[in-house]
Design a protein around this nucleic acid. Structure first.
Lengths: 333, 333
DNA sequence: CTGTTAGCGCATTCAG
DNA sequence: CTGAATGCGCTAACAG
């Protein structure tokens, strides 16, 4: 347990004062001679400045708190990846917390992170509630939400409503009439409500004989798979999963039951997970630029940290990816 | 920019001294009366103790640095997930960095993290080199490596060699003779060398007429796909991918070329990615308990932090998962 | 260009 | 049980 070497040790060894060393460290005015003496003193002592002492003075930590719903999620991974790039470029680090897809945990993590000396907080949220707004009142640091929206906060997200509409248009134009929308809890506004509403809006309006039945599942592959029987009980010609995971779970169910896709029923998802290209048949989906979303969130956080104003954005790039899992409906009588 | 409220403010408002407040905060001796006065003072001021000041005194940060190869990787996500659970339980947080699958970056991140006031460091490594060992010499904090091994460090990993052997046995028993092993760079000891060596050892030894050709690809799906033509040029009856991603990439290539699996050629992977169950046909693989690995790494880090000794472990649970992508070889003349 | 002097906010002796 | 005093290691005026 060797004593930690401090800036003082370096100073005495180099025969200068603490402040001179500090200046050396922080690009201040230094004569070449002393600079080199200090350099070698640091070398021999193996000095490394104390992170906490420094931060106690300077007031900023170069730390951004990030809350993700899960670690092992495709979407989260992509968003984080985009965030990582932007943070790295700016010399920031991530302090990570997981909400386990729970609003309660999310709030708890927000509170905890706030007290950890971070400069800003980014929450990949599972839904922005009144409790969030209330909590934000005694936040003295910038907060950005990702993936969900609320008029009173700064957020960045994909346009789930538009995505739903695009999907509605796609399925409608293929002539499908009996559709099951396999979605998630409406406590998730973006995925649970917006995608569904967008879909129904375009698909149903003035579409004679069209019906869309809602079946609720969880977010994971498995729970979608489990809902397979219920879904099929409605004899749909198309099944729209609210996420690619759901679409894939359904696909698996159908495959095991020997129900052929897309001949007997079309299946789609949302998200653009690259693994969705590997299923059999490959899943038609709407691909979002999650990485871009992450980058955008961080870049705007940096702006906020810089005192600039930022405006929320909910129309991150997306793209319909039509693959083998859909075809024109055969509307039997 | 309202002044930050400090422990002093609370003290004066409550009519006690700073130290009493500090004691209140840290479970010291306090009279009930003062305790409640302090409680309400904290309430009204909205006091929150300064993270950095606290850490400057107490010397520990409850922060564990973690380096992952990528954010958007299945394996990394699972390991992180396991780590997250264990850290949470112990009240630790993760300071995250990405190595981008590069040894150079990995070293750089290790250095950076070391100077960030973390209590310990866990590196999901892409390969432990001499530079790592050298760097470790002036590390004054516990370091654990995950996924790779080296006699001079503490590490936790799955038994890649054994996994290779198991796969070798599996393929051999199915009667395959002409095999292509689609692997990765040998700079990755675990995945690039151990899995391959284990496979060859069991598959080739005394296996009359057996041959295994090595084709190098990257870690990602796409580069495996790109290697498809080269792989097939050897006319294998079985293709063993060093990871599930590689297996899936190959599968995709074959599917697009109309080469049927497993009728014409068997394909396998390593890892147990859950998406590998969704491919067509579902991929035979060896599943590792990555989440358990992550948990184990953190639990042992906590031990080290506690001054206990820990021993490296390289035999994390694994399990062969035989799915539709393999069948008995038809060894035509 | 450089040394001296003050704290940053908190935890922790040490006397009461 | 409590308050006063001290210092963690560093940066930032302030005078030279």
């Amino acid at each position: 347990m060797e004593r930690k070497v401090t800036i003082q040790d370096v100073a005495t060894l180099a025969g200068v004062s603490k402040s001179t060393v500090s200046r050396y460290l922080n690009a201040g005015y230094i004569s070449d001679e002393k600079a080199s003496r200090i350099r070698s003193a640091i070398q021999t002592t193996g000095f490394r400045s104390n992170f906490f002492a420094r931060r106690l003075k300077t007031r900023d930590s170069k730390l951004i708190g990030i809350i993700v719903p899960r670690f092992d999620s495709y979407t989260g991974g992509r968003v984080l990846s985009g965030m990582g790039k932007a943070m790295e470029k700016a010399g920031y680090q991530a302090l990570l917390q997981v909400s386990h897809l729970s609003s309660r945990y999310e709030l708890e993590r927000m509170r905890r992170l706030r007290d950890q000396g971070i400069d800003g907080l980014i929450v990949i949220s599972v839904g922005i509630t009144e409790d969030h707004i209330k909590l934000l009142e005694d936040f003295d640091l910038p907060v950005i939400f990702v993936g969900q929206q609320h008029p009173e906060v700064c957020y960045f997200k994909v346009d789930d409503y538009a995505a739903g509409r695009v999907m509605g248009k796609t399925i409608r134009e293929l002539g499908h009439k009996r559709v099951v929308f396999a979605g998630v809890t409406s406590s998730d506004r973006a995925v649970g409500i917006e995608r569904r509403d967008g879909f129904e809006e375009v698909f149903s309006r003035g579409n004679r004989g069209a019906s869309v039945t809602f079946v609720e599942t969880g977010f994971d592959f498995q729970s979608a798979y489990n809902a397979g029987a219920e879904i099929m009980s409605y004899c749909p010609t198309a099944i729209v999963g609210a996420t690619d995971n759901i679409g894939l779970g359904v696909l698996r169910y159908l495959h095991e039951r020997g129900i052929s896709v897309p001949e007997e029923v079309s299946v789609t998802g949302f998200g653009g997970y690259d693994v969705a290209a590997l299923s059999y048949p490959p899943l038609t989906t709407i691909a979002f630029d999650y990485e871009g979303l992450g980058t955008m969130a961080v870049e705007n956080m940096l702006k906020m940290l810089d005192g600039e104003d930022v405006v929320s954005k909910d129309d991150v790039l997306m793209q319909v990816v039509v693959r083998g899992s859909v075809r024109k409906a055969i509307n039997r009588k």
